[in-house]
Design a binder for these strands. Structure first.
Lengths: 230, 230
DNA sequence: AATTTAACCAATCCGCATATGATTTCCCTC
DNA sequence: GAGGGAAATCATATGCGGATTGGTTAAATT
């Protein structure tokens, strides 16, 4: 049932030749089945059987409405934030931040330019000048992203953006109602200054440690402390 | 110039009332400017001034063609992989992998279920049975993803997927032509087994260290060694 | 009876009309 | 003539219908 007639085998041979010829040209998408079957002189059924073999072998992949392509997998072009956010919780987000952001701060300490550091310091000032929770959050977001940007690694920056988007989706509408004014002696002020200072001094380990400490403070504030439990 | 007439102030007051009334309903998008100006009985110019104030304050955000929304930021729904991949290079990808994946392995050692570990071991076997470079890559990808899945943290899994997609986009069409057979004594076989073993034994540090070592081997193989240079 | 062919289905892409925020221009009023 | 508001205009994003494509089923042909 898998190799019924010789027509199927002939189609597979022709297809492999076509693939080899096409792979050299750097083209990834091959013609529609209706065209290709006529072009190769085989029936569409046999062509589809040959394509199925190659697909199971991982040499091509197909998708309805798009076409048939050479390569191992579809390489999703976009990642849905809500897809991730819908299947997770604040604790997991916090864990991911604790893993990623300290290392990003370390990279920033290694690669930040002077203008990066100047921009961070300006954000520090703006953080203290915020008169609204919303404003504070905005500047806080900006500062963290500036640190990621200072790593001079666009992959890390992209991962940070994804994580940030997931975080904002997952904790949406949480800390809204607790008074509309900025906290005067908020721990984050000193935390942020320590982080930026370590980056400015090129203290790799210090930057990572300061960021880790800051995030642990945030975590402690996010989840009401249950000291007796642990 | 900022508060020319009383019309602007009146518009701002009405708008704030409208926002408060709407925020309770959970709706985030407010009507078009042309409708809203007529609905509130103010000129569109005054309405826009009031909206500009609220936007600078971070209470709303606007975008051409979409509308005006309440909230601090647009919260991008999708992240474009090619956007990240287009602005980076293999070295940055490798650096990000070295930061993220060892920590994911550590989490996996902590949270993996028995069936997770069984699936990994099966992938190990399939890795050795691969008769084609493409097949090997597929199983290798699967194994690394299984490790990320075993972390039982969907955020980390999502970040891994993003990183993986960027990697496959950025190094696409690289290691293709070096012989179509799987390497017999590939270092990755032993590396992978060490990683899975450490996860199975709940050796957190060991899993992270094994993964780090593995990735460093991959890096060394990706970038032709220039021993004298360093 | 088997295979080819055609027809149909579900998902995707593409072009065009529409909607929306931003900007400019024109006109009216004082 | 100067200010302000309404309308026109622009640039961008969305929504929808037709065309395309892989997947499936039925008819036809040999």
């Amino acid at each position: 049932m898998d190799d019924p007639g010789n027509g199927c085998h002939a189609a597979l041979v022709q297809l492999q030749a076509y693939l080899a010829q096409m792979d050299h040209a750097g083209e990834t998408r091959l013609p529609a089945e209706r065209e290709l079957s006529e072009s190769l002189g085989v029936s569409r059924g046999d062509l589809r059987k040959a394509l199925a073999v190659l697909e199971k072998d991982g040499r091509i992949w197909r998708h309805v409405g798009r076409g048939t392509f050479v390569g191992s997998g579809p390489v999703e072009e976009t990642i849905g934030i809500s897809e991730i956010a819908g299947r997770t919780n604040p604790a997991d987000v916090m864990r991911a931040r604790l893993i990623l952001e300290p290392e990003i701060a370390r990279e920033a300490a290694l690669h930040a330019t002077l203008s990066d550091i100047a921009a961070m310091r300006q954000s520090l000032v703006q953080t203290r000048e915020a008169v609204t929770w919303r404003q504070y959050e905005n500047v806080d977001n900006l500062l963290h992203r500036q640190i990621a940007q200072a790593s001079r690694n666009n992959v890390l920056l992209g991962l940070f953006d994804v994580l940030n988007a997931v975080r904002r989706t997952v904790v949406w509408g949480r800390l809204r109602s607790e008074g509309a004014r900025p906290p005067a002696d908020h721990h984050s002020f000193a935390d942020h200054e320590r982080i930026v200072e370590a980056i400015a001094e090129r203290d790799l380990g210090g930057a990572a440690a300061a960021m880790r400490l800051h995030l642990q403070q945030v975590e402690r504030r996010l989840i009401p402390v249950r000291e007796a439990a642990e």
